[in-house]
Each structure stands twice: as C-alpha cells, then as structure tokens.
Nucleic acid binder design. Sequence first.
DNA 1: ACGTTATAGTTTGACATCAAACCTTTTCTA
DNA 2: TAGAAAAGGTTTGATGTCAAACTATAACGT
Lengths: 151, 151
Amino acid sequence: MSNYYQGMKADMKSELIIRQIGQVRDKANAFLIKELKRRHMKGIAPTHGDILWALYTYGELPMNKLAQIIGRDKSTVTALVNKLINFKYVEKRTDPADSRISNIFLTEKGRAMKQDFWEVSEALRAKAYQGLSKEQMATLMELLNKIQENL
Amino acid sequence: MSNYYQGMKADMKSELIIRQIGQVRDKANAFLIKELKRRHMKGIAPTHGDILWALYTYGELPMNKLAQIIGRDKSTVTALVNKLINFKYVEKRTDPADSRISNIFLTEKGRAMKQDFWEVSEALRAKAYQGLSKEQMATLMELLNKIQENL
DNA sequence: ACGTTATAGTTTGACATCAAACCTTTTCTA
DNA sequence: TAGAAAAGGTTTGATGTCAAACTATAACGT
C-alpha cells in the first residue's frame, strides 16, 4: 500500500485490518489464478478450485452443501458447477431418494487434477506463510475466527 | 463454517487461513452493504465507499491514484466513479497542467455523507473487533502485513 | 387425502471486476 | 525537431456474484 496512509490518525488504523484482509484475499486469488493458468487450467477461478477441493475431500456432494462449504450463493454454484461440467471435471446426477437434489461428483479427468491442485495450494502456502511460525499462524487463525464469529 | 472441516489432516489447516480471510472479507462486505442500505445509500458498494473515503481523507485525487489506493483496476475505477457521479456524490474535472488527467472531487452532497460513512465504519469496527485487545489487533495487523508482503 | 408450506436448484437481471484494446496527450530519445 | 514510447483514462467483452423470481418436488398440517 502506498504512502497515502502515512500520517493518519491512530484511531483510523484499526479500520485498516479489514482493508488489509481484502488486500491479502485479492493477492491470494491473483496468485491462484496465475498458478492455475500456468498449469493449463485457464478459466478456473479460485471458487471453481474450492468446489473441486470440497469434492476431493468429501467425495460426491449435493449442490446446497457445495454452496455452504464454499460460502457462495446457490445460483453462483449453479454457474460454477456448470462450467466444471463443461470442462468435464465433474458430472451431476439426481439423488435417487429426492429428485430435487443434484449430486456432483468428480470425473476421471477431475480426479486426475488433484495433484496439480495440491501443488498450487502448496505453492500458495509456501509463499504466503514464509517467515511465519506455527504459533503465529495459530494466533492468526484464532483472531480471524474471532472476527468471523463477530460478523 | 460447518462441520465439514472436522477431522481434517493437520497440515491442511494452514490452508484454512486464506479461506478464513476470504470469509471475513465477504462478511465484512455484506455488513457494509447492509448498513449503507439502511442509511438509504443503496447501490453503494464497499469499493464506492473506499473511493469516497479516499476523497474524505486526501481531498481531490486523480483517477490513477484512486485506483492505486483502493487496489482496483483503472477500468473498474472508471465505472465506480461514473456511478458516484451519477449519484452526484462526486464530480470530475480535467487537470489544467495535464489534460490526460481527470481529477475527482467531492460535491456538497458527497461531503454531507461523511458522517454516515464514519458511523458505518465505526459500526463495522465495533462489531468485528469485539473482544479483541489493542495488542491482539496489532498482532493481527502485523501478521496480515507479513502475508501481504509475501504474496 | 388434500392444500399449504418448505426445500432444491435454475433462470434472470444487475453489477463489480479484470484484461485487452483503444484514443489522446505527454514524455523521451536520437 | 520528429518519431517512438509511455501515461491517463475509456471502451469492450467476459465472468464471478448476489438477489429475486421461478419451477418442481417433498414435507407438513388439518
């Protein structure tokens, strides 16, 4: 951030935490997009990655669970999932017990990408957390959790 | 966040910091939008607020400085500023020393909103930082700065 | 059993956002 | 001095995102 914040009143600085959080988020996303692109996964946004990550972790999931996990609106998930379907990373099938429910599952192609995703995520971690100890990271997580609970 | 993260491998937890950062950001934005709306400032997004905030703080600014301050692309700032112009919160005038440069300044109506913005920002702070000490906030800021520098 | 209410996911519209291309103006270099 | 390069901001296209409205299905209450 530029010098524009020099000389600010002290009580305005606490506002900067939320701004900095936004900055970190933007930068992390930019990094992810770049890394995904580098691995020929162009067109995959961080939230597509979130969906794939959820499927790698939990296996087949209904749409509303995906929406919950990645923290996005149902309608957003529809569009995201449809793109992944077009790319043939996932498929959709109706739940036999409740035909309102669409379950999303990984294709062979989608499963084959797991390693790449792990590497991208590793790269992000390595870069972001340089010079941070385990304790610092734990503290950070604790504070972020606190703020999230507050909001 | 739901129970889906229970039982995860320990080394995956550090990935959650970035996710949590995203969540906090999303929630903060949602809060801001709600509060702005409540004050009849519908249609004003957090980034519009960032622009107004920059103008409150620094006075008249050229477009590229606004883009730098709020961390957004020039073309985004064009659209954001145009909306603020339509709402009559700001106006634009060409710099006499360099006719490529458009300077953006607050109107009377825009200046009259400062108090509301301060209150919204206060409300966000009050809510987000409940139960956090000054030291914790300083620690948090320090860690976020570190991550941002890394990325 | 039937009508009402709730749920799951989709469609539609609006908009913030970025990247690329573009146009005008200014700066730089030979 | 003239042409090339750079800078400032706009336009255009694509896309993630949310909210509202919608459709089909399931659950609930009488």
